[in-house]
């Protein structure tokens, strides 16, 4: 009985190996081949993963590996040529440009940062300067915004996050404000959304790609955060998402970036809830 079992397992293992092998050898030898390493911002990560998957389906000889690690990590790694393409959801800082002067950026999509509250919150509109005051800790109750009399529970991403730096650059810097100490840190956009959807006093900024029914987006100065309003320029809290190469894209790198900008690649952007470019 045991022997029979062992033989069956051995046969299954053998067939698996054969199967895997034949699957590899079946791939046609046409089309571009080689490997690409992509890493960086977690905001761009879902886009990169989808682009890589589609591109590898098209050109089976291509091996593309995609990972996160954050914008800073992406910029640094491409500057040091550890990876081929870096992804960033913020502009390159002066210091980084000084260190790696030959980085080339391509905007492959746009992201918008929205303000989200719990769906039960009657508030629907907020002024840009009030957002800054809330994050500065000056306004701590929804009644000061014309809402219910309850304290505001503030959430934020961690230091270094692309979403946070976009929010700081576009909204807070204008009013010369910094996020005050009592905002609770959540290490991803998904967790920010989860926190606010479970906290009826919650208040947070959020990448528009993560907006769904579990939270409610506020209009800012009367402008609803919809993709149309972002495209028309009415909604101004927008940032670019970049793919970065060192000293110009090579053939393979160019292929990936072109694919990202192609109509097929931009469909992915749309499906993931980000804003298309071009």
């Amino acid at each position: 009985m045991n022997k029979l079992f062992a033989v069956i397992i051995a046969i299954i293992l053998f067939l698996t190996i054969i199967g895997v092998y034949s699957n590899y050898s079946k791939t046609p030898s046409s089309g571009p081949s080689g490997s690409l390493n992509i890493a960086g911002s977690t905001t761009v990560l879902p886009l990169n993963q989808e682009w890589a998957r589609l591109l590898m389906e098209k050109y089976p000889n291509l091996r593309i590996s995609v990972s996160g690690g954050g914008s800073g990590n992406g910029i640094k790694s491409v500057g040091l040529e550890i990876i081929d393409i870096g992804a960033a959801s913020r502009d390159i800082k002066e210091k980084e440009f000084k260190e790696y002067p030959d980085l080339e950026l391509v905007t492959v999509a746009k992201d918008s940062v929205i303000i989200a509250v719990h769906p039960s919150n009657p508030l629907s509109d907020i002024k840009m300067k009030d957002i800054a005051k809330i994050y500065a800790g000056e306004i701590t109750n929804f009644k000061d915004l014309g809402g219910l009399d309850m304290e505001i529970n503030l959430y934020s991403r961690e230091e270094g996050s692309g979403t946070r730096s976009a929010f700081e650059d576009i909204v807070l810097k204008k009013f010369d404000v910094e996020i005050f100490s009592k905002a609770l840190i959540k290490p991803s956009n998904g967790e920010l959304r989860a926190a606010v959807s479970g906290d009826n006093q919650g208040f947070t900024y959020l990448s528009i790609g993560y907006l769904d029914n579990s939270v409610k987006a506020l209009s800012i100065d009367g402008v609803e955060p919809t993709i149309e309003n972002v495209k028309s320029g009415d909604y101004t809290v927008v940032r670019s998402l970049y793919l970065i190469t060192k000293s110009g894209p090579s053939e393979l790198e160019g292929l990936f970036i072109e694919f990202a900008l192609s109509p097929e690649g931009q469909t992915v952007v749309d499906e993931q809830g980000y804003i298309t470019v071009g």
């Binding site: 996160g68 640094k76 230091e159 270094g160 840190i185």
Partner: peptide, 14 residues
């Protein structure tokens, strides 16, 4: 450590 390590620029004081 967990919250900040993934976004800290490698080699920085942070």
């Amino acid at each position: 450590i967990v919250i900040e390590i993934s976004y800290a620029v490698w080699g920085s004081p942070h």
